[in-house]
Amino acid sequence: MGRYLIRRVIISMITLVCISMVVFFILAAAPGDPLSGFGSNPNVPAELRQRLREQMGIDDPVPVRYARWATQYVQGNWGISYTTRSDARDYVLGRLPITLKVVGGAYLISLLIALPVGIISAVKQYSLFDQVATTFAFLGFSLPTFFTGILFILIFSVKLHWFPFIYDDTVKGFWPNLKQMIMPMMVLALASTGSLTRFVRASMLEVVGQDYVRTARAKGLRERSVLILHAARNALIPVVTIIAIEAPAVVGGAVVTEQIFRIPGIGSALVQGVNEGDVPVVMAISFGYAILVVIFNIIADILYATLDPRIKFS
């Protein structure tokens, strides 16, 4: 286990280095200049502009710039945001909590729905419940988040006046905060619940036909303990790994949701950063996202092997 883990971490490190190179070179090869706006300003003397360029090392060859960026990134210096003029690290990390709250809440809701619904669907395959659940799952993963967002706002804010549709981060107190987070969380949850339910159902279906489930029934155990203790416990092993692997995708989905509800989180910082050519911020978020994916993949591997004794690390 230990040796496997070390190898896994080393491979992940190499992957991360490659990803950072890819992202960096896409940024570096792009037309345009981070100082173009600043540079075309006639009030800025040419001399100052030149000095700034040298200071920022804009004219250095790309590999040199990459090496400099990488060493600074590892040291925790993510550069200065071009637009907010503040430390990119503080800026990005400052926006993280809201995103985590919304995404975490949404994922939790999604799990709380998907697990029981998926299990019941599988146990009562082709029943009315299963058909309704299947229909909802299909609706869920066919609805793009930007459309559900707009629909929810139209229904719950414009018509019913239940929830505010523009996020206000100056709001104090638990209830008002929860109230304004409900819609974005529901939008995200709706998007991820469908596929998760289908996955739980498929995984459960695979298990309920197994011999050991029949044995458990033959022993005279109550149906509930057969399904929960014998079937579901095994069916949920692959589900747990999917939960870990899919978690970063939900963070990605937050980009659209944050844009619709004007939530000042990571996602809206990314869109803003991309639109304004704010390289340090974009780089920090994209790379941070890559790190998240890699970490969750390792977690999924470890979970899978610890939960299923048949799997041996090799």
Partner: peptide, 17 residues
């Protein structure tokens, strides 16, 4: 490697740039 790439950020980035 491609699976670990940050898809949406890259999509936005490449399209914008």
């Amino acid at each position: 490697l491609f699976i670990c790439l940050p898809q949406l950020p890259l999509l936005l980035l490449i399209s914008f740039l």
